[in-house]
Design a protein around this nucleic acid. Structure first.
Lengths: 169, 169
DNA sequence: TAAGATTGACTCTTCAATCTTC
DNA sequence: GAAGATTGAAGAGTCAATCTTA
């Protein structure tokens, strides 16, 4: 195995080596893949939150805002938001509370279900979502430093992983 | 574009379509890759925490324990733990507090630096780390449902991404 | 009885401020 | 003054319990 001659040390590659040395070779690839995903998420989340800070948004709330802006009526039942974003009902309540406090979203009663509540994006919310997306596209999504082909491969591999994990039905 | 005929609906593929429709095609692949990583991390973290629950460990604390068990002396300065795991000093303090409360780790003064503290793994910590790893290998790392070749590709792609993000020097 | 939403308790993370030692 | 570590406050996530309505 050749080591990159520049001072590059990868903790995950090191862990993989340890796994093999301890007789867990069969799980070493999976360990390395899982740990890589965890670390990449951490880095990307920090970048995203940084890009969104000027808009007083977090990535979680940005996702909610984009989901609403893409919905055909500009509003969705809170439960459906949680489904699509795969987060707890409690997290949705929290996110909508903050978005509502910032006047980016309004709560409305669900006309089809007296128990339900709709989250409806406001004009201000649409405007902020557009601006935030420009920032996200420039500072995060277009700044990953990987060629398009690699990004598509990554998407495909992770889609398989999500499918195997029971996500995506 | 062909739709899988079984009821498979992928929110991320849908978002990618929206990105293209809104004139953000140049960033669509990056958006899909980033969102995929976020979602995959969420799923894997839930699986990991589930597998570690019988041991009263979280993934964060499990990583600390493994790092210490692999270190040559069985102990490391807290600062180095944070470096390797890429987490805040405050998070390290918290994790070590819990591990110490469970008698899996002991704090010791750093003989080479009066300001510093070492985290040293105990025999109990080593034993629990071994058992937890068997569970993680079986329920998570070997249960991803992807062929070894795909896992290696995933690792390589994410290593490139981490490198471009300034991780990994 | 079940489903939609909210609340409160707890965990984990980050940030700013602080304390000790170099 | 700078570095290692800790503390307290705030954000965001999960879980269990609760309230209202179907």
């Amino acid at each position: 195995v050749s080591e990159s001659r520049s001072s590059s040390f990868d903790p995950i590659a090191e862990a993989k080596r340890q796994w093999t040395d301890h007789g867990w070779a069969a799980a070493a690839e999976g360990m390395a893949a899982v740990t890589s995903i965890m670390r990449a998420q951490q880095l990307l989340l920090a970048q995203a939150d940084g890009a969104l800070r000027p808009f007083s948004l977090t990535f979680a709330r940005y996702e909610v805002l984009m989901l609403l802006s893409f919905s055909s009526r500009g509003s969705l039942p809170l439960g459906r938001v949680g489904e699509r974003l795969q987060v707890n009902p409690a997290s949705v309540t929290n996110a909508i509370n903050r978005l509502e406090a910032a006047a980016l979203v309004r709560r409305e009663p669900n006309p089809f279900d007296g128990r339900g509540t709709l989250a409806a994006i406001t004009d201000l919310g649409r405007e902020l979502a557009r601006e935030a997306t420009l920032a996200m596209n420039e500072s995060v999504f277009s700044a990953l430093g990987l060629p398009e082909r690699a990004l598509n491969e990554l998407f495909a591999l992770l889609r398989d992983l999500r499918r195997a994990a029971g996500d995506l039905t």
